[in-house]
């Protein structure tokens, strides 16, 4: 049942040009950045060779690329998640799901998985760039895997937050803007920690990109994984509760 909804959700994304345009724009911009980074790497390479334990191509090309990708996607993901529930509410098609023999959990999980399929497509296309490095050199495979999983977890939490905010309103624009606001807040929340002595660790633990950074560097820490999984789970539960609550209003 979850799978039926997920497939419909995934397919519906490609029925509008939005998904195609997003994939194309992101791929173009990041492709250009990838080439720039690679060029810089060639300039630096002669000096790096003389260093012992020097950073490799993964650290100098891929990690910065994915940092930029994370920030671009922070701005783009709200556009993808905004329609998920808000559009169904506006078009009154949510009634179809509500009167089908489905639990609210199945509906929400179906929606989430459908969008995650899109995220997997998106991240896999981005990963083609680092994989192309195998043609000429040997990047750090373990690090690449950590980066891949890190991106999926990061975008998964973006999706869960977007899904929840989409369930709060009928208006897609409001859903998109509020999702963007929450994501931005979660990004900059630890900026203040430089001037604060206490509370520092709490704020930087909350920061969504802080956890991503360590995964980009190839550090696979359970506390980071737990952070993302809790965030995803939390917002999915909130979404289920929100939809349940609306039947009572």
């Amino acid at each position: 049942m979850i799978w039926v909804i997920a497939r419909r959700e995934f397919g519906a994304m490609f029925l509008s040009p939005l998904a195609w345009v997003i994939l194309a724009v992101i791929q173009t911009i990041l492709g250009y950045m990838f080439l720039t980074n690679l060029d810089n790497f060639f300039v630096l390479q002669p000096q790096l060779i003389q260093l012992e334990n020097s950073p490799g191509v993964t650290d100098l090309v891929i990690t910065p690329l994915m940092q930029v990708a994370a920030i671009i996607l922070l701005m783009v993901m709200p556009l993808l998640t905004m329609r998920s529930i808000a559009e169904e509410k506006r078009n009154r098609t949510l009634t179809l799901l509500m009167s089908s023999p489905l639990s609210m959990t199945e509906i929400v999980l179906g929606k989430f998985l459908g969008m995650m399929l899109f995220v997997i497509v998106l991240v896999s296309m981005l990963m083609l760039m680092p994989l192309s490095l195998y043609l000429g050199t040997s990047p750090d495979s373990g690090k690449l895997l950590s980066i891949y999983i890190g991106m999926l977890l990061l975008l998964g939490s973006f999706t869960a937050i977007g899904l929840y905010l989409s369930s709060l309103t009928e208006n897609q624009t409001i859903a998109a803007i509020s999702t963007f606001g929450v994501l931005l807040m979660l990004w900059i929340i630890d900026w203040v920690s430089a001037s604060l002595s206490n509370g520092h660790s709490v704020l930087s633990y909350l920061s969504i990109l802080q956890h991503h950074q360590s995964m980009l560097e190839g550090v696979f820490d359970t506390s980071d994984i737990a952070y993302y999984l809790l965030l995803i789970l939390g917002f999915l539960v909130l979404t289920i509760r929100q939809l349940d609550r609306e039947r009572l209003l």
Binding site: A12, N91, R92, T93, T95, L96, P101, L102
Partner: peptide
């Protein structure tokens, strides 16, 4: 709900 078919006021169709 398995025993039920429901047509709401606005038909819930995906355009």
């Amino acid at each position: 709900k398995q025993q039920l078919g429901y047509l709401p006021e606005h038909p819930p169709v995906y355009r």
